[in-house]
Amino acid sequence: MASTACFIIVSRNDIPIYEAEVGSAIKKEEAAHQHQFILHAALDIVQDLAWTTSAMFLKSTDRLMLLHDSRNEDGIKSFFQEVHELYIKILLNPLYLPGSRITSAHFDTKVRALARRYL
């Protein structure tokens, strides 16, 4: 498992709709901010690359972003695929307004479990 990992789902409007610190390292307040700052800054490039690169595991307009320090590409790939499935389930919920924050506790637990398994 990676020592540092911050997972975030960003909606089409660049609003983070889900965020989770999934790293095993002891969390520090500032570090958490830093991760978010980095992810936020990365959005620019992600946006640019979204349709040009083949390195995206999922071609999705809502972006799933993981800040990580592990080299386990396969793990990340499977993590993304599983989380994407979960995310689609959330999207299918008729009560969920696409683009609003994901508040489901179930989703959160599942994502964290996946992070433990794959990262």
């Binding site: 409007n13 660049d14 609003i15 983070p16 901010h33 978010q36 936020h40 683009g99 924050r101």
Partner: peptide, 19 residues
């Protein structure tokens, strides 16, 4: 339109914004 309302509250990076 829900989508356009969302655009009103663009970029809710509240943690970052607070920092």
């Amino acid at each position: 339109q829900p989508q356009s309302i969302i655009s009103l509250f663009e970029s809710q990076w509240s943690t970052l914004q607070m920092v």
